[in-house]
Each structure stands twice: as structure tokens, then as C-alpha cells.
Design a protein around this nucleic acid. Structure first.
Lengths: 222, 222
DNA sequence: TAGATTGTTAATCGATTAACAATC
DNA sequence: TAGATTGTTAATCGATTAACAATC
């Protein structure tokens, strides 16, 4: 399966999945693209287009999509049954907040360890859904990844000045996917073709709102 | 100024601004679109297109953009001199992490108060860049907003089940911009035309990576 | 059957990239 | 001057929306 998927598509797929979770319908019920529109706000045309694009062709005319089958397809795309073990680089407040992010749990994304340079953090544990996840020293990362070769994804929540260096290090150690939560643009090291890097610019949506509100003269009054 | 701005544009504008900050050049130096490309990774064509779109026409042929002038223009778009006071609804780990998010400080976005329903949180303070920001009870929101009428933006970091109800409440109380950090799609209440709502789906970029890595058969080996 | 809903194609819209005349 | 770089237009690309034949 070599299809490219955009952030927008994967996000909508998440919405469909969450809609199903929320509705909690019996397995043999059917749900139509129009119903999915009502719940998710994504137009029924877009829903069908997404399904078409991803090869989900399980619909029945006049009925819609069987809940059980749809669940299965969406789970497959979201890799929910497989799950994914990840590490978090940077055990500051953001790193710890992400570690216990409930939605990761729902998606079977499991933070297995955090890494930091601060001696006062190293050796502590973060309480994540009943598990104690260790905070380790960044110097032990190499050894840790050798022992946990299933881990191919890292979340980067370090201060921005050390972000690029750590990204390079992660790639060198064989990490294949990095979500960059620092506000800096990070570049993929030369030659690291198979590595995926996504910048998750947390502030950006706020600045959009600031722009809209402070530049467009929207009335302040209620 | 009625121009619409997309999230992508505003994010790139942020990158240009941060590039200038990072370079820390003398006011009278010039920087070209090509140099900006080198630092930010955004193509020089895109840089000029963005400037054109936003009416930034301060460039000099053969030289580029004067640092001082460019700073001024970018600050204007990002509302950095004006700044923005915001509140955070939900004082959980994510809400508190966002409150002390360094980039907000750089951008002159100031979290003035957090609100929560948990009695054990209410009355505490969050230490944000040398200021003590109070956690207040959600029932006091109405009164608080009456006394702080400059606040028009709220960040929503509550559990998803209460998110829509709180959003409606915020709109009722006159809030004009809401950044939704919950993983649920929230709808703008009927008739609330001037209100901006942006969904900042924190998990989404991770799921994209999970998809890429687990669906495309990328080699695991180093 | 008639109505509803899919799968799929075509049209539209928006964003990015490329090109280049103007000119410092 | 010649080279470099802008501002702006045109071309391309990708994503969304609309349309509709197929059919349950």
C-alpha cells in the first residue's frame, strides 16, 4: 500500500472513527455518509470521496456502511489494532502532557519512555494510564533504542535550540518518524529519505485567530 | 483590512519572523527571499508570494528586504505589538502546559486566567513567566469576562464530553475566537457569525506518521 | 416501483510553483 | 553595464465540491 495520505485526510478519518465510537451502534447497523456529515461536519461528498480514495468500498446503496465493517476499515487505516510504541524526547510540561494524552491511549499509541538532559528529572516516572513510564537520560537513548527496536517514532518536545541536533541524532539511531512539537522548522538530514518529519506547530491556530480578530474589525460587543 | 488568511500563510509568516529573531541582524541590513528560503525552508517564490498577498512591498531589487522594515510588517500581521490577552478553559496538564508555552510569550500572547470545575484546582496559581496566573472556577467566568472585557480569545482544553457546551457558553459570553484543543469537532453555534473557531488537533500529525510508517513498508533497519 | 445512497467522474476552488519583465 | 532580486502574473498542482449513473 503506497498511497500518500495528507494530514487533512487522516484527520477526517479520525473524525469518522470517533463518530462511530461516540454513537456506539450495534455492529450490524448501517450508517450513511449523510449521517456521518451530521455528526462530524464533514460533507457527505467528502466522506465518500475519502472512502473512495482509500479504497473503502463497503457501502450498500440505500443503506450506507455497516458499522462493523466500517470500524474495521478505519481501524486498519489508523493502525489502531497494531498500535504504535513511541518515545518522547523532552520531559517538560508539554512532553508529559502528551504522554498522558487520552486520545493517544484510544488510538493505541503508547509512550514507552521519556528522555531529557535535566538530572533532576531523570529517574522519575510519569504516570500514564496506570503505567509508570520512566524518564531517562538522553545519553541512554542509543542503548535504549537498541533494546527496543520496535520503536520507530519519536515526539520532539525539547527547547528549540537543541531540536535540530536531537532530530539528527534520532535519525542516526534509526528513528523513522518524528513529530516536531517545537516551534522551529526542522530539516530532514541529507540522505535520510525514508524518514518522515511532521511539524506540529501548536501555536499556529491561535495566531490565525489573533489575526482574524485584531485585523478584521469584528465587533467586540456581545 | 478584510483579507482572509489561511493557517498555512500565518504559519509561514511566523517562520519568517522567527528567522529574523534568530539571525538578530542590525536594523539596516537587508535580507533576501533566497536567504529566507535557506533558513526557513520556505521557497523564495513562496516568500515573495506571501509578501505580495499580504501587501508587504518593501523590497529593494538586488538587496532584499530591510530588516527593520520587515520586522515591522511581520509584527503588524502577527499583532505582536498589540499583544492578546487570552483565557484557558481547562486547567489540566495541557492547559497548564499551554499557559507557560514560551512561544506565546514571544508573541505577546498572555494567559490571564485558567478556569476549571475541579475544586482542588480552583484557587491555585500557575507560574507563567514570573506572573502568578489564577485558576478560577468556571462558574466565575461570566463575572470575570465582564470585568476583563478586553479578552476575546479562549483556548479550550477541557475533556471532550463537555467541550461543546463550554464553547456555546463562551460564545454567549461574548468570546470571539476559540482554539479548540480537544480532539472533537466543535460547531459554531447557530447565528454566531463573527466568531472564529479553529480546531487544533494535536494528535493528527502523529497519526499521519503512524500511517506512513505502518502502511508503506519502510525499512526498519538503520 | 420509487426513493435513497453509493462509487466515481468531472468541475471548481484554492494554494503553490514557475516564469519573467522591471529595475536597482 | 551586468547581475541580482523584486513584484506580479501565469501555469501547475492538489484538494474539495458537485453531479450523476448505477442499483439496492
Amino acid at each position: 500500500m503506497k498511497k500518500k495520505i495528507s494530514l487533512r485526510v487522516i484527520r477526517r478519518i479520525s473524525f469518522y472513527y470517533e463518530a462511530l465510537l461516540k454513537l456506539n451502534l450495534p455492529d450490524d447497523h448501517y450508517i450513511s455518509s449523510t449521517q456521518l456529515e451530521d455528526i462530524t461536519g464533514v460533507s457527505c461528498n467528502q466522506v465518500r470521496q475519502d472512502f473512495f480514495y482509500l479504497g473503502i468500498s463497503i457501502g450498500k446503496q440505500k443503506k450506507g456502511y455497516q458499522v462493523k465493517k466500517l470500524f474495521k476499515e478505519l481501524k486498519k487505516i489508523l493502525s489502531i489494532d497494531t498500535g504504535a510504541d513511541v518515545i518522547v524526547i523532552g520531559a517538560g510540561r508539554l512532553g508529559r502532557a502528551l504522554s498522558e494524552y487520552k486520545l493517544f491511549k484510544v488510538r493505541n499509541v503508547n509512550v514507552k519512555a521519556l528522555f531529557d538532559v535535566k538530572e533532576e528529572l531523570v529517574g522519575n516516572f510519569v504516570h500514564v494510564f496506570g503505567e509508570e513510564v520512566p524518564i531517562m537520560h538522553i545519553d541512554d537513548l542509543d542503548e535504549y533504542l537498541k533494546q527496543h527496536s520496535q520503536i520507530r517514532i519519536a515526539l520532539l518536545t525539547v527547547p528549540e535550540h537543541s531540536a535540530q541536533a536531537l532530530l539528527d541524532k534520532l535519525v542516526n539511531l534509526g528513528i523513522k518518524g518524528i513529530v516536531n512539537f517545537t516551534p522551529r522548522i526542522l530539516k530532514r538530514p541529507e540522505g535520510a529519505m525514508g524518514v518522515q518529519i511532521v511539524n506540529d506547530c501548536i501555536g499556529a491556530s491561535l495566531y490565525k485567530i489573533v489575526y482574524q480578530i485584531y485585523h478584521q474589525g469584528i465587533d467586540k460587543a456581545k
